[in-house]
Structures are given as C-alpha cells and as structure tokens.
Amino acid sequence: MARPPRFDVDQLLDAAVRRAAASGPTGVTMSAVAKDVGAPSGSVYHRFPGRPALLAEVWLRTVAGFQEGYLQALGADVDPQRAARAAARHVIAWSRAHPDEAALLLYGAEDFGRTEWSEEHRCRADLGNQRVYAALAALAAALGVKGPGAAECIALALVELPLASVRRHLRAGQPLPAHAEELAEQCAGALLDGLLAGEIAV
C-alpha cells in the first residue's frame, strides 16, 4: 500500500502565505516554501508545476477564503442596510482572525504574477470577483441606489474603506485596534446614509 504524502498541498500553501506576509510575493519561491516545511524541493514541484502555479494557488485560496465569509455576511440579513454594515465589519474581523492572509491580500493578483497564470487560474480568479461584484450590485439595487457609479460607491463603502484601515495598521506592524470593526461599520453607514439621502451623487 502506498504511503500517504508527508507534505500536503495545504501545508505548502500555509508556508507560502507566511512567506508572502513576511516578505511579499517575491519571497514566495519553490525552494523557500520547501525549506519552511522541511520538504525536498521535489515535493513542491510534485504538487505545483512551477512558481506561477504556486503563486496562483496561494492567491486564489486566500481570496476564496475571504470571499466566502464576505458573501455570507452580505446575504445574512434581509435588511440591506444591516447586511451592508455586516459586510464592512467582516473585512476587519476576517483580517483580525487571519493577519497573514490579510497582509497577502494587501497586494494584488498582478503582484502574484497573474499574467503568467494558466487560463484555468485566471478564470477562477475572475469568477470569484464576478460573484462579489454581482452581490454588491444586488445590494445597491436592494438599497435603491442607482446611477453609473452606484456599484463603485458601494464597493468603496464596504470593501475599500475597511481595507484601508487594515492596510494602515498591518503595514505599520500594528495589531488592529479593538474598535476597528465599529469604525468600519460607522464609516460604511455614513456613506450609505449619504447615498440614500441623495447627498452623494452617483
């Protein structure tokens, strides 16, 4: 009977996440990941045909983990305003619970070599993004926010502003403060209130 593999894909990707958080995407190499888990380089190449595949998988797994919880937060309440506030809080809460993954997501797919990814990897990335954009557009419709900039404004309130708070603290090497979720919710709520009152044109 064949022996089970000593090093599985998740172990290797966990090591890649830690490398990316500490050194950025350039620090994620096949040899570095192998060294971090105490595996021969062949074990990494057996699971990933090359560095572009490794970078793609670590990015996609991290994004998928964030997006799963984010979409759940958006759909967790029938009241769209409460759902929106929950989504803003989720960005902070998830980053607090997964600081290494959050540090990784402060980069972009291009930093992880998207141009060298396989078509299958690029399609997976696009599909995940489309699901989030569709959910934000549906939320905008449920809120009654209309206009060419509606989806962008909703994304600013529920994604970009909370991420800006995460970025400021993580890049400074500081933990997220205890009030970060509340602040993200208040900022998102203020922007949404301005949209709904017609004080912000979209």
Rank of each mutant, 00 (worst) to 15 (best):
A125Y: 14
A140R: 14
A140G: 08
G194Y: 00
G194I: 00
Q130K: 12
L127P: 08
I154K: 08
V132F: 09
K146A: 14
G189F: 00
H169E: 15
V132M: 12
A151I: 14
L196G: 11
R124I: 06
A141F: 08
L161A: 05
V132S: 11
A135F: 04
E182I: 03
L127Y: 10
G189D: 02
P175R: 13
I154N: 04
D193C: 07
R131S: 12
G173K: 10
R122P: 13
A141H: 13
A184R: 08
R122D: 05
A141G: 09
L183H: 15
I154Y: 09
L139K: 03
A137F: 10
A142M: 06
E182P: 13
V166Q: 07
L143W: 05
Y133C: 07
G194R: 01
P148Q: 00
G128T: 08
E152K: 12
G149T: 03
L136K: 12
H169Y: 15
G194S: 03
A164Y: 01
L176K: 11
G194D: 04
A155D: 07
A137H: 15
L163K: 15
A150S: 05
I200K: 12
E160C: 01
V159N: 13
E199R: 15
L161Q: 14
I200S: 11
A201D: 13
A134I: 05
R124V: 01
G147S: 00
G144E: 06
Q186I: 05
R124N: 05
C123L: 07
L195K: 04
G147F: 01
G198I: 00
L161G: 01
L158V: 04
Q186G: 07
L183W: 13
Q186S: 12
A155K: 08
L170E: 03
A140I: 06
V166Y: 06
A125I: 03
A138V: 05
E185K: 07
D126I: 10
L196F: 07
A172V: 07
L156Q: 06
E199D: 09
P175V: 02
A142C: 05
P162R: 02
A135R: 02
G128D: 02
V159D: 11
E182L: 10
L195S: 03
L136N: 09
A138F: 11
R168V: 05
A155C: 01
E181T: 00
P162G: 02
E199A: 09
L191I: 04
H121L: 00
G128K: 09
L161H: 09
A155M: 04
V159M: 03
Q186V: 12
A172T: 12
I154A: 08
R122Q: 03
A197R: 10
G128V: 05
Q186H: 13
D126F: 13
L158Y: 02
P177H: 13
E182T: 11
K146D: 09
A140C: 05
E152G: 06
A151K: 12
A197E: 14
C187P: 05
A151P: 08
L196T: 03
P177S: 09
L161E: 13
R168A: 15
R131T: 02
Q130G: 10
A142N: 11
R168W: 04
L176I: 00
Q186F: 09
L161V: 13
G189V: 00
G144L: 02
L143F: 09
L195R: 00
L127E: 14
G149F: 01
P177M: 05
E181S: 10
Q130M: 07
L156G: 06
G198N: 04
A155H: 11
R168Y: 14
A178Y: 06
P177F: 05
L161K: 07
R171E: 03
R131Y: 02
A138K: 14
